[in-house]
Amino acid sequence: MKDLQSFVSDYTKDKKHLQLVIGIIREGDIEYFSFCNDKKKSMIPPENRLFEICSITKVFTSILLLAMEQEKLISSDDTVGKYVQNVKNDYLNKISLKSLATHTSGLPVLAANHILSKNRSNPYSIYTEEDLIAFLSDADYTDRIDSFEYSNIGMGLLGNILCKVSGNTYDELLKKYITSPLKMNETAVMLDSEQNGRFLNGHASTGKRVPHWDLSIYEGAGGIKSSVSDLSLFVQANLNDDNPIASTLQKSHLPIWIGNSNRYFGWHEDKLLDKSIVWHNGASSGFNSYLAWNKELSLGIVLLSNYSFFSNSLIDYYFAQLRKLITRKEPTQGTMIDSIGKKIMEVIMQR
């Protein structure tokens, strides 16, 4: 796309350390584009640089559930209570693994006993399995069951259950059921030394470098690191039924009527130019990600950025307020790359 610069110029402006990579998938072909404001030259091709993909991880966790269900190791209709046996709480017997995968369990975005302010720079690292058990022991969101409520803790719990049932780590499950069959060799939670050399630094919306996140018990909700080349292969697999895990992916594409609306295993659905697009995004304090696809037109897009759309630091907030006081201008807000992705998707759909 020769005019891609016009779509990203507002986003790339004034981001000194920015690295933005885009993959466009059309009828089996993949094109990569990169925009880099960092003056340090790198020998690593942009398509092989690694980013935190954050909540796009949730799609992978949901597909792992479906893959294990196909092997009859688990059922998506099993209750959560069946797998949290050291907690006696009837609410857990009212919600299923399917509820966790579709965000309809009633569980909130974060556990009530998870205080982010205890470690703002790496807020998920301090939350342990003991904390999770303590939260689940008296959690009761029965009145919200079957209503959509986006839940990091719910998807983290699902990933934890899948690991315990299989006796494998999350990375071992990922490799067995998804990344190895699709030859996605750059996608994992725990990176090896070579991969770490390609793992970019993340930056807050202010431009400040921030630590990488350690997801701990939440790894199934947002722990994966990946490249635009790997995620483009993943989108391609979702568009093409001729791949080793096509039957599992196809199940994740089927809408499920829950409550009063359709839900998906891990995915979200939206309308663009009167056509359905399936998508997910992600954000940490240093990264932003987005992917979307339309199977009818065999089109998809992946965007990865090492800039967040928000800052998780109180210091950054106070600095922005001080700047506002001096300049009498509202502080610049970070922008999610979702809007760029949708604009580009619209253009390639029209063409």
Results as ranks from 00 to 15, higher is better:
F7I: 08
V8G: 03
S9I: 14
K15C: 02
K15S: 05
H17P: 07
H17S: 09
L18Y: 05
Q19V: 14
G28V: 15
D29K: 15
I30R: 12
N37M: 10
S42E: 15
P46Y: 07
N48L: 12
L50V: 15
F51Q: 03
F51A: 03
C54K: 09
I56G: 00
F60E: 00
T61R: 03
L65C: 10
L65W: 03
L66C: 04
A67I: 02
E69H: 09
Q70G: 12
I74E: 01
S75G: 12
V80M: 01
K82F: 01
K82H: 02
Y83M: 07
N89G: 07
D90E: 13
Y91H: 09
L92I: 10
N93S: 09
T102M: 08
T102V: 11
T104M: 05
S105F: 04
A112T: 10
N113D: 05
S117F: 05
S117C: 06
S121P: 06
N122W: 03
Y127H: 04
T128P: 12
E130S: 08
D131R: 06
F135L: 03
D138S: 14
A139K: 11
A139L: 07
D140Y: 08
Y141S: 04
R144G: 00
I145G: 10
F148W: 08
F148S: 06
N152A: 00
G154I: 07
G156Y: 00
G159L: 04
N160W: 04
N160R: 09
G167Q: 11
D171P: 07
L173I: 03
K176V: 05
Y177W: 14
I178E: 00
D192Y: 08
F199L: 14
N201A: 07
H203D: 05
A204F: 03
S205A: 01
P211F: 00
H212N: 10
H212Y: 08
D214Y: 06
K225A: 02
S226P: 15
D230R: 01
D230G: 06
L233T: 15
F234C: 10
V235G: 07
A237H: 04
L239T: 13
L239A: 11
D242A: 13
D242E: 15
D242W: 10
L249G: 06
K251C: 12
I258A: 05
G259T: 08
G259C: 03
N260A: 04
R263N: 13
G266E: 06
K271D: 12
L272C: 12
L273N: 15
L273C: 10
I277F: 03
N281A: 02
S285G: 08
Y290L: 09
A292C: 14
W293M: 14
W293H: 15
E296W: 13
E296I: 13
L297T: 15
S298C: 14
G300M: 10
Y307S: 02
F309C: 05
S311D: 06
S313F: 02
S313W: 04
D316S: 06
F319Y: 12
A320D: 15
A320V: 05
A320R: 13
Q321N: 11
L322W: 08
L322G: 05
R323L: 05
L325Y: 02
T327I: 00
P331E: 01
P331Y: 01
T332C: 00
T332L: 07
G334K: 05
T335Q: 13
I337T: 02
D338H: 09
S339A: 07
K342I: 12
K343D: 13
K343I: 06
V347H: 08
Q350A: 07
R351G: 09
R351D: 12
